[in-house]
Simulated assay, not measured.
Amino acid sequence: MSQNHASLNYRATSFLISAARFDQCPPATGREVAFAGRSNAGKSSALNALTGSNKLARTSKTPGRTQLINFFTINNGEHKLVDLPGYGFAKVPEAMKLEWQKELGTYLEERPNLVGVVLLVDIRHPLKEFDEMMIDWAITSGMPLHILLTKSDKLKFGAAKAALQKLRNQLRDHKDLITVQLFSSLNKVGIDELSAQLDHWYLAPEAEAEIVEVDDQEPAED
């Protein structure tokens, strides 16, 4: 990680706008980190725990209520958190599910200021089809991915650590691109680690993101 010790105040996060379609997204200014996950993975609870708000992201006992791409500004600045539609359980027509999936894919593929994705995975049920799809996409596209093993409070400490190590072992060939941690919204476990990862993505020097372009333009001498 970068040695940049600056930090954003995620408790100063506020709602900006919701988009039902990609063309309704706000201008691509600043950097964005998107939160993705199956509908029962605890995405809204994690966002609320990170920001210290019980109302920032809507939580529901009915999985799949997040049907829009929701944008939030941090410190009233240009950097944004993005809550992507939950995938899975929503009781809506199949055509509507396919439409959500299309807009989700368009956002991930075409949003130019997306710098990282946080994938929320229920620690008791890794890895489901959607999780594997997101991991494969991140590897193929070179998009940094940080996996939260949510609801870690549901397992005993030893079992949770074992699940963490098992997933890290599965992904060890991609450890420079994909990181994994334990997280519990209920017990507030892992918030500092998540905040540090977000700081790295938002605040890393611009040169780090441009190094590939620079190398392509100016090949190293023999």
Rank of each mutant, 00 (worst) to 15 (best):
K175L: 04
K151F: 09
P126Y: 14
D176T: 04
E109F: 04
K102R: 15
D122E: 08
L149M: 06
V115A: 12
V118C: 02
V115H: 08
A159L: 12
G88F: 11
L120W: 09
L98N: 02
L120F: 05
V121F: 06
G86R: 03
A163C: 05
L171H: 05
Y107C: 02
K151R: 07
D176I: 00
S141E: 15
A163H: 07
I123Q: 07
K161T: 10
K154W: 10
L148G: 00
Q165R: 09
L164Y: 04
L127E: 14
V118Q: 02
M134L: 15
S152I: 06
L98G: 01
E94T: 13
Y87A: 04
P126M: 14
A138S: 12
A95Y: 15
G86S: 08
V121N: 08
R124S: 03
G158D: 08
M143V: 01
K156M: 01
R111E: 07
V118H: 07
D176Y: 00
K175F: 05
E99V: 06
F157A: 13
L149E: 00
K128V: 12
P93S: 09
L167Q: 09
K91S: 11
L171M: 05
P85K: 07
L164D: 02
L119F: 02
G88N: 13
R124G: 03
P126R: 11
E99G: 00
D136M: 12
F130P: 01
D122R: 05
A138T: 03
W137L: 07
A162Y: 01
V92W: 08
G88K: 14
D131C: 12
F157I: 10
V115R: 07
K154F: 05
P93R: 15
L120H: 09
P144Y: 07
E132F: 03
K161C: 02
L171E: 10
T140V: 15
E99L: 10
N113R: 12
W137I: 00
T106S: 04
G86E: 03
A95T: 10
L149F: 05
K154E: 13
K97F: 10
A163K: 09
L104R: 12
A159S: 13
Y87F: 15
M133G: 09
L167K: 11
E129W: 00
D122I: 09
E110R: 15
A138K: 01
K175D: 02
Q170L: 14
R168M: 14
N169C: 01
K156L: 02
M96A: 05
V117G: 04
F157W: 04
R168L: 04
